[in-house]
Simulated assay, not measured.
Amino acid sequence: MEIGIIRMSSKGQIVIPASMRRDLDDGEQLVIIRDGSRFILKPLEDLEPALEDDIRFAEQTEKAYLEFEKGEYTHEKDVDFIQKMKSW
C-alpha cells in the first residue's frame, strides 16, 4: 500500500502523487466516493456496468438540477424529456 499527502486547493482541486498515477492515462475519468470520513478514488472503467450507468445518470441529473437553479431550465414536452433521459 502506498500513502501520500495531498492538499486541496481553494478551487477544490487535488493532485494525485506521480508515483500513484503512473498507471492512469491523461484524461482518464475517476470516481470518488465518500463514505463518512473515508474517500475512495478509482478509475471509472473498473466499476461494474450497472454502477457506472447509475453514476453517469446521477451526473446528468445533477447537471440538469444546476441548470435549473441558474434559471437555464427550458420547458419540454414530456415525451421529449423522456427521450433525452434515455440518451443519458
Rank of each mutant, 00 (worst) to 15 (best):
E48R: 15
L66A: 12
V31P: 07
E45R: 15
I33G: 11
A58K: 14
F81P: 00
E69P: 00
S87M: 02
S19T: 12
I32C: 07
I32T: 08
A50R: 14
F39A: 09
Q60C: 05
P43R: 11
L51D: 12
D54F: 04
D53F: 01
E45S: 14
I5Q: 13
M1W: 08
M20H: 11
E72S: 07
E52K: 15
P49C: 02
D80P: 00
S87G: 09
I3G: 02
Q83S: 01
L47N: 08
D25M: 04
G4W: 02
K86H: 05
Q60K: 12
A58I: 05
S37E: 15
E45Q: 11
A18G: 06
D54H: 04
R22P: 00
E2L: 12
G12R: 14
D25L: 09
F68P: 00
F81N: 04
F81C: 02
L24K: 08
I6C: 01
K77S: 06
L44V: 01
R22I: 10
E76M: 05
K70L: 11
D78L: 10
R56Q: 07
D35H: 11
G36R: 10
V15C: 13
R38Q: 11
T74H: 03
T61C: 06
I6W: 04
K42Q: 10
R56I: 03
S37D: 14
Q60L: 09
G12T: 10
E69H: 12
F81D: 04
E45Y: 09
L47D: 07
P43V: 01
S9M: 12
E52Q: 14
G27E: 11
I82E: 08
V15H: 14
S87P: 00
K70E: 13
E2C: 04
I82M: 05
E59F: 03
D78P: 01
Q29C: 07
D78Y: 03
D25F: 03
V31R: 10
L66Y: 09
E69L: 15
L44Y: 07
A58Y: 13
Y65E: 04
D53H: 03
W88Y: 09
K77F: 06
I16H: 13
G27Y: 09
A64T: 12
M20D: 08
G36N: 12
